[in-house]
Design a protein around this nucleic acid. Structure first.
Lengths: 225, 225
DNA sequence: GACTCTTGTTACCGCAAGTAACATCTGGCA
DNA sequence: TGCCAGATGTTACTTGCGGTAACAAGAGTC
């Protein structure tokens, strides 16, 4: 079946090898799509058996393609992480005013998690990274759990664009991770309780980042004042 | 063994029942302490068998006391959560200047996670809350995973002390969860990479909350400018 | 036709969560 | 004294999951 291989690149190296590789990659994509359907349906606790069944095959094939469950989840994660990062980057580049940029980026993140909460939950809970601890070698740093990656990316953008003085790099990283964490926690809570519109959430968060916490007045009857 | 029950309250209702209850509670505390030792040693993936062995008993007793693994972990969590919340509250009440209060609170949180990273990791990863989804009834909201609880507490404090105008309650909650998320993410990253001293981390975060992001100058060679 | 590579299978191992059924020790009480 | 009730404890089991070994079959290459 599906023996139409006249489309695509078949000109470099071993033709057979190329054809084989594209076929393997396509298969891999199909498996990932099946996995995604199941994860969307069953949450992060989806079983390898269920995923294999959805793909119409059995477990060992999944293991041959992805090594272990972590590998499959990592492969799933990088796709969405990359997509999300693209969105955020364009939001960060579009507007001219700094406050507009921040608002657009927050908005882009919230739109994404609102559109596909299941995917988002899956990405945020990387299913208990096992500490290799023993056995000497470092299992080479699997894909940094989304949040950390987002933090680093934002830190880069901040330090590229803002003049933070002497310890600028350090400060940019703290801010990057801090802002990402703020957005994530607020978004998580908002998604769960829906206490207000997305626009208002963005405004409140931006106000917080714009120093409102420092300038707002005390209440008269506050304790200790 | 240990049949000295002359200490404590033995005056209300059925004396026997009281004595029994205190004994049960003490047993429960002992089990929790054993569980804590193991979780500290093995991380959040510690097995019920291991915990039971540490306590010198076997699994079914754990299940009789705590229902299921989630119940045990919840019981473990509330103890530390309460302790941490006490720390944070005193930090929030001590200093007079608002900025000092914020710094003291951040500091208290960071000191806590620095002192016992294992406990902290355990508290933050509530081991994949299972969505009951089917079967009608809601499994009645188990103890809100630390982060949410911290967010709500902070929101309360904020709305008690600051004059946030019309939509104050809503804004306070957004800020509460946002600040907690910021601190958590930054602390997580800091604990892992140790890129600077705790004092500097606190300063950077407080600067961020004090609106430095809004007032800092652009770099000349920034893209799009 | 033998060689190899990939896809696919069934059947298994080890381990963890959770449960059932049974044994024992305690004190209350008719 | 003998029976009941309730808590503590056990062994032995079921179920389900991650992961693997061993084997079978199609397809292209020499």
């Amino acid at each position: 079946m599906d023996s139409e291989e006249h489309s695509g690149t078949a000109h470099s190296g071993t033709e057979q090898g190329d054809r084989q590789q594209t076929a393997t990659e396509r298969r891999r994509r199909e498996l990932l799509e099946a996995a995604e359907r199941i994860v969307l349906r069953d949450g992060p606790g989806a079983s390898m058996n269920a995923i294999a069944a959805e793909a119409g095959i059995t477990k060992p094939i999944l293991y041959r393609h992805f090594g272990d469950k972590g590998g499959l989840y990592r492969a799933l994660a990088v796709r969405h992480t990359d997509a999300l990062l693209d969105n955020l980057r364009t939001a960060l580049d579009a507007p001219v005013l700094r406050r507009d940029r921040v608002e657009a980026t927050l908005e882009a993140y919230l739109v994404a998690i609102e559109a596909r909460p299941q995917v988002y939950r899956f990405l945020m809970h990387p299913a208990d990274e096992d500490i290799p601890s023993e056995s000497g070698f470092d299992v080479g740093r699997h894909s940094a759990p989304l949040l950390r990656r987002l933090g680093e990316e934002l830190a880069t953008v901040i330090s590229e664009r803002l003049d933070l003085g002497a310890d600028g790099a350090e400060r940019a990283r703290v801010w990057g991770h801090g802002i990402v964490g703020m957005t994530h926690a607020a978004g998580d809570w908002w998604l769960r309780e829906r206490p207000c519109s997305r626009e208002q959430l963005v405004r409140h968060l931006t106000d917080l980042l714009w120093g409102q916490l420092a300038t707002v007045r005390d209440l008269a009857n506050g304790p200790g004042f």
